[in-house]
Design a protein around this nucleic acid. Sequence first.
DNA 1: CTGAATTTTCAGTAATTACTGAAATTGATG
DNA 2: CATCAATTTCAGTAATTACTGAAAATTCAG
Lengths: 177, 177
Amino acid sequence: MNSSDVSANLSLDEVRDNFISQWGAFGSHWGINRTMAQIHALLMTGLEALSTDEVMAKLSVSRGNAHTNLKELVSWGLVRIVVKKGDRKEYFDAERDVWKIFTIILRERQRREIDPALDLLRNCQEETKGLEGAEAEAFRNQVKELENFVSFARNLGSKVDKLSYGPAMKLAAKFLG
Amino acid sequence: MNSSDVSANLSLDEVRDNFISQWGAFGSHWGINRTMAQIHALLMTGLEALSTDEVMAKLSVSRGNAHTNLKELVSWGLVRIVVKKGDRKEYFDAERDVWKIFTIILRERQRREIDPALDLLRNCQEETKGLEGAEAEAFRNQVKELENFVSFARNLGSKVDKLSYGPAMKLAAKFLG
DNA sequence: CTGAATTTTCAGTAATTACTGAAATTGATG
DNA sequence: CATCAATTTCAGTAATTACTGAAAATTCAG
């Protein structure tokens, strides 16, 4: 490693650290907490799988925090456990394929947010089915409109989820063109 | 108003209050805070525009909270101010059209979350343009992939935003069919 | 088994975000 | 311009969410 490499590496680390920290802030707008998004960004932009201790060191977070968020990422499917032979530690590596990342987050958010919202909308209609009067009509109608839209969006999401990157891009290109 | 109306109204209010409170919780997953989402739900599912005091009473929130969130909703375009002649108070009424609600939220989130994310991704590429080595390559490449995807999504969003409900449904139907 | 390395849990605390309530400001009216 | 209803602001506080660090549990090699 010569001196220009050193300066290049320092600079890369600076840019990368900045990226990781800011990406974490975006994550929190997307149902993914800051540390979770930062860990994913760290693993996704690096070459190698890292151990819990390495993640702790790179992000200056506690063991508990690193552990909880790594496991959460694994449960989402955004990170996988890598075992290195002759080493008892677990290493973690991130999903890097943007389309896969997108569909995983889409699926998770549908499950956690859209589906319960649909349940609520449907229950509200059920529970006010027999009620008469302008107020009840207005309520039921608005809830029905919301349900129509949300279940439509839900269906679109499911379809998109099933597409792979290539076909999705082709379709989108057609739409954008 | 006869006794069956009374019982019907009580029941409607129960269902509606429950809806408003739960809808508020969903809002917080969508970049809209709880009270803001609740106020929108309250106004959207009722027939009449309400004053700040009425909102305070219906949701049991403080004047400051009601005021701030009403004004925020107005600034988003999800609520409009209604003036009643011979009354100094301001009244507030919500946008009820689901497609308009959707495009308003879409536009706001693109501005607040997607555009800054794109800036970050582009800056990171710019700042590492000259760097060599496997690590720099990997970083730059992953960031580029993310940018491709996010800017693609951004474009799709803009297109959707410009569609009105009818054409949007027709397109979607084609896709879903 | 034993004990060291590693993972997991969780009570306590910190950081963040949202809300209250009262005071300051605005602006319409006589 | 004095008054009063209504709106706006914001310092202080409450509620929520995330994190720490140490202790408990697990795993595995010898």
